[in-house]
Nucleic acid binder design. Structure first.
Lengths: 339, 339
DNA sequence: GACGTGGAATGCAACGTTGCATCATGGAGT
DNA sequence: ACTCCATGATGCAACGTTGCATTCCACGTC
């Protein structure tokens, strides 16, 4: 009732039983006679007992916390993912602690090592700046799940969409609309991140299958995946006078930036320029025109990632080999390609 | 170095000193001779000692966690706010735990009471469904900061922008452009949330000052503040044939939904319809056309809120009276009103 | 009537840390 | 030479909880 915290000791005193018995009632373990249980429960309610998490954790050797390490929370893709994860984790009585790495390699390294950070029972990380080798070198004892990036040498579980076919599908969709000058927007050769590489691979595969030779002038590098970068890359492309009738952006944010640029230049979308994004963020649906995008099943990403953690945290068994989990995606076709 | 956790005991054994001395070195407290300090530090490094948070918390009676309770993480405004808060909290060695209430009154009540949830040292809550009376009735012993909603009876600190003048400013901007049929989009009479009421108040005040009588047909109610709701409200408005030359939406998401609708109907923005939003989310800048919006200083919101918590958590003093902190805002004028 | 049985309740100890009080040591002061 | 003191190092206890082992009691059985 009141805000004052009461301990097992207080409840025990009020109920006239031992601390241990109260503990049994609270945890539901051990044998407790019905009338005792009722009596203790009454005392619990009266004092508004709430277990001390720190003490429990100390005893259990767990914190009940799992970490989510993402480049940044304000990016729609990650905030949507984080929101789902927080929700899903709650159902498993876990609390999510979100860390932002801002694409900083040191920050990612620090989190993997656990230095300076709060101790978590497990960590779900969406690596960005670290190479697979780095990832392997700095992983700590805590159960780990990688999002997107595959871990080398079977270091940890990994959950991701199948980037190559997904990118292929998106590109093929544009090809099917008769587009031949399709820009690939979002290469990041300076990062060791494999995601961009895989999407590029799918893009190239689709072109080749259609008998089109990839044109380096159409492949644009970006520093990050923000709208600004998409805007800048699109602007440069147009400034250079490169002929282009479609854009496959490696993220929705990039696509939205490119879209903004197209509008500014007076290009009609999809008439003059068809645009496809990747991530299936909410904004995509409400853009003008609504953005065609590859939508990963985010709910499944969070569910599977948690399941991986649960398996490793709760089973002291001789760990099963790291799993590589592929979650489904679908190409959601909207007005930015089929007006 | 390795993933195995080592305790003060282990370090002490390796360094050949007592546990207490190691503790002194780690915490920097107490008197420790230089050569001892060096020796212990070496042992600490060698074993890669990391303090056990649970034990510390248990001893200190604090968890080092603060809660952030928001309606939903995937809304841009809240994800931007959360991102900033996580960052700012890190500097104060706090860890943020995010709870989503999804606008559910029960969820908000539960968080205020702390039932079932993890125990936090402080809670920053952005109330949505609860009335001020509810908020007062259910608050618990933990330091509390309200975002947006004023707490009644001096229950807790509150950080917010000054909604009435801000809304007034936005409306006045539209009036200054010669608009006379300005829709107010975002009323929520079914909620006890005061934010919408205040923005409506500012809107009305501006109209009256301009000698315009508020027209009920221009004031639109929404269920939530999502793009869908803005789209629906705008659609209804146009379907009813209400004459309108501008929209002041109480959130950017609503504005973006309305914008989407305007595009669909072939309205030119800002030619036929000028649009102003509220919140200053990132998307607003990249919409087509870029959205004029009231931008609250989000960084200051998080900073001030944390400062409030810090003051209450760390000062055992006879608490200062609850503060009502107003953070600055600015009207960012973009192409959706001045094309 | 003694004994075994099993359910119910309890006591002890430990998880890893830190506040407080105590103890050891060596140098300065008388 | 003896005391005094400052500095450095240590031991004890406690934070609130739970695993394990024990005790207690009532009941049924031989």
């Amino acid at each position: 009732m009141s805000g004052v915290t009461s301990r097992l000791k207080d409840v025990a005193a009020l109920a006239g039983v031992s601390i241990r018995t109260v503990s049994n009632v609270v945890s539901g373990s051990g044998a407790v006679a019905e009338h005792t249980r009722v009596k203790v429960q009454a005392a619990l309610d009266e004092l508004g007992y709430r277990p001390n998490v720190a003490a429990r954790n100390l005893r259990a050797g767990r914190t009940g916390l799992i970490g989510l390490a993402i480049p940044e929370l304000h990016s729609p893709y990650f905030s949507e993912l984080a929101g789902l994860l927080v929700q899903a984790a709650q159902q498993r009585s876990w609390t999510v602690v979100i860390d932002q790495t801002f694409g900083d390699a040191d920050a990612e390294r620090r989190l993997l090592e656990g230095t300076g950070g709060r101790v978590v029972d497990g960590l779900i990380i969406s690596p960005w700046a670290l190479s697979p080798e780095d990832l392997a070198a700095h992983a700590r004892g805590v159960p780990l799940v990688f999002l997107g990036e595959r871990s080398p040498g079977g270091l940890a579980d990994r959950v991701a969409v199948d980037n190559v076919p997904a990118a292929d599908e998106a590109t093929t969709h544009l090809l099917g609309l008769g587009r031949r000058r399709i820009a690939a927007l979002g290469l990041q050769p300076h990062l060791h991140n494999g995601t961009a590489r895989q999407r590029h691979e799918g893009y190239t595969a689709a072109l080749r299958r259609a008998g089109i030779a990839p044109d380096p002038a159409l492949e644009r590098t970006v520093a990050t995946l923000h709208r600004e970068d998409g805007y800048a890359a699109m602007s440069a492309l147009l400034d250079e006078g490169v002929e282009v009738d479609a854009v496959f952006a490696f993220s929705d944010e990039l696509a939205l930036g490119a879209l903004h640029c197209a509008h500014q230049r007076g290009l009609r979308v999809p008439g003059d320029l068809a645009v496809v994004g990747f991530d299936g963020i909410d904004d995509a649906r409400w853009a003008h025109p609504a953005l065609t995008t590859v939508v990963p099943d985010k709910r499944q990403i969070t569910e599977r990632a948690l399941q991986c953690l649960a398996d490793r945290i709760y089973s002291p068994a001789p760990a099963v080999p790291p799993q590589d989990i592929v979650v489904p995606h679908r190409l959601e076709i909207r007005a930015s390609t089929v007006g």
